[in-house]
Design a protein around this nucleic acid. Structure first.
Lengths: 230, 230
DNA sequence: AAGGCAAAAAGTGCATGCAATTGCCTCCGG
DNA sequence: CCGGAGGCAATTGCATGCACTTTTTGCCTT
């Protein structure tokens, strides 16, 4: 083969394929409904069809691609209805995590959450969307971990990744940044005082709002986003 | 190849493998930690290693088998802690389904639920564990569908199947049958009067009790079940 | 000109073969 | 007697080839 398959090192070939293809889907580079031809993908990444097939299988299990027997794979196309169901699920899952976090977070976890949350306030003041996004992700991850429930954690992360393609532009909405922080603040406050019911409700509301914000973009997401190849 | 691969017809070869191996895991025929050798499985089912590999991949995504790169696959071994987290998740998921069902079930869905539930009462009187298990599964499925949320449905079914190996003996506990029905009754009643909070709580409690009942069996599940190699 | 049918082209599904990695067993040194 | 290095067997990971299914295209019929 040509180069030592430089991009995306580490892990087995299949892992690389999963990441390579998955990234392109999550970032919107490959658009819903787009055909995923095994042969072309294999050629594109300079591997044989076997690891590509396995990667498509895994991505299918993740819900990112749809596989039709004997008819090839396409990037999963989600109906507006199914999208709504995923957002609703996400709200419930986050609510559970927040509720459990309020009950179970260790004092050091609470401290960490508080500190990160306050740090992210600076990003809001600066209006740094990109940086805030990092803190946002970290914030939610802390909630998932704080729930101290491996399985819920897994389900939540899975659902979140599946929603990723539809969430990416949410912070472009004017004022969304500050609002997001305030919503986080409600959650943090509730967790700090151990109010599991309030924490759950605040988390649910937070996701619901994100859901609506994203829906705006889901609609005009049809415009060509195609960039350079990788 | 020899015979027309008679067992488990329909679907692609991989589907058959997934079902064949998955069944053996879910029913406890293959025990946690047991090595799943690709070559032997391929020989056993008279197919090549390729579909077996893909099946193992899917089962791994389902959480039924654990795959260690270059080191083969084993039947997923869950720690007591992770098992507890799955049961807890299940309780929360069922609670969500019951809550949504109370709010969203159509009148015909409500009618169907009620009828099935009443029918299952006969199984309790007869002490027919096997038959009751069918109604039980059906009952929960109705709850999942009644939530009218495709994604929650998916997560719930996935979690349920993953718990299947640890639930199978629950109805062997004396008196569990009648208690189960009474718990179902609480859920049904709450749903019928549209009391989402009560429905959710009843469903959560129901699963929690099942969880404890199953834990009893999870402990002495270590005894050798090994039979002939299928 | 439009519809339908058939043959070819394309692409998936599975089998098989080879390379690479792992685990084990042996042998040697301490 | 124990610990480690090296080689061997077993098993996984990937590549390739063939068969079958689906789709497309071009021609023939109406």
């Amino acid at each position: 083969m040509s180069g030592k398959r430089s991009l995306i090192r580490s892990g087995t070939t299949v892992d690389q394929m999963v990441r390579a293809i998955g990234d392109r889907i999550v970032t919107g580079y490959l658009r819903p409904g787009e055909k995923l031809d095994e042969t072309s993908l294999a050629a594109r990444f300079d591997v044989s069809r076997t690891p590509v097939r396995e990667a498509l299988g895994r991505l299918s299990a993740m819900g990112l691609v749809e596989r039709r027997p004997n008819r090839g794979a396409i990037v999963a196309v989600v109906t507006q209805e199914h999208l709504a169901s995923m957002f609703e699920s996400m709200a419930e899952l986050e609510a559970i995590c927040a509720r459990f976090s309020a009950e179970r977070m260790t004092s050091s976890e609470r401290r960490g959450l508080e500190i990160e949350h306050q740090a992210s306030a600076r990003m809001v003041q600066l209006g740094a969307e990109e940086d805030y996004e990092y803190f946002n992700t970290e914030f939610h991850s802390r909630l998932y971990r704080g729930a101290h429930n491996a399985h819920i954690h897994e389900l939540t992360v899975m659902t979140r990744s599946r929603l990723a393609p539809f969430r990416r532009a949410q912070f472009m909405l004017p004022g969304r940044l500050a609002k997001s922080w305030q919503e986080h603040d409600l959650i943090v406050t509730a967790i700090m005082r151990g109010d599991s019911v309030a924490a759950g409700q605040a988390a649910r509301d937070h996701v619901s709002i994100v859901s609506e914000a994203s829906a705006v973009f889901a609609a005009d997401d049809r415009k060509p986003i195609r960039r350079h190849v990788a």
